[in-house]
Amino acid sequence: MSSDPRDFAAHEAALLDERRFDDWLALFTEDGHYWVPLLGAVQADPFSHNSLAYEDRLLLQLRVDRLKNPRAHSQHPPSHSQHVLQPSRIEEETGDAVHLRTPFLYIEARGESQILLTGTARHHLARTPTGWAIREKRIDLLNAARALPAIQLFI
Rank of each mutant, 00 (worst) to 15 (best):
E93N: 10
R19H: 13
D23V: 00
E12S: 11
H83I: 02
D56H: 12
L39H: 12
S51I: 03
P5I: 00
D7R: 12
L85Q: 02
F47Y: 15
L67F: 11
E12A: 06
I134E: 02
P87F: 00
Q61I: 02
R63K: 12
P149A: 15
T120V: 10
L38K: 14
A144G: 10
R20Q: 14
L16T: 00
V64Q: 03
F28Y: 12
G131A: 01
D4W: 05
V98T: 10
D17N: 02
Q61K: 13
L15P: 09
F21D: 03
A72Y: 11
T120M: 13
P103V: 01
D4I: 04
G131Y: 06
L59N: 11
P87E: 05
L15I: 02
H124K: 07
E55M: 02
R20L: 05
L116Q: 15
S3Y: 07
L15W: 04
L125S: 00
L15H: 09
N69I: 11
I90N: 03
L62S: 04
D31G: 07
L38V: 04
E91R: 08
R110H: 11
G95K: 06
F21H: 02
D7C: 09
R135L: 05
A150H: 13
I90W: 01
R19T: 12
A121L: 14
T29P: 06
A145H: 12
A147E: 10
S79D: 07
L125C: 00
L62R: 10
A10C: 07
R89L: 09
A13N: 02
R20A: 15
N143T: 10
R20M: 06
A9T: 05
T118W: 01
A41P: 05
M1A: 15
R63M: 05
G119W: 03
R19C: 12
A147S: 15
H73Y: 10
E92Y: 07
D17Q: 01
A13S: 10
P103L: 02
A109R: 11
L52Y: 09
Y34D: 04
S74D: 14
V84M: 09
A109C: 05
A97W: 05
L125A: 01
R135I: 04
E55H: 11
V84Q: 13
D96A: 10
G95N: 12
E12G: 01
F21S: 00
Y106K: 07
L141V: 04
A53S: 11
V84T: 13
L27F: 08
Q152E: 14
H33D: 14
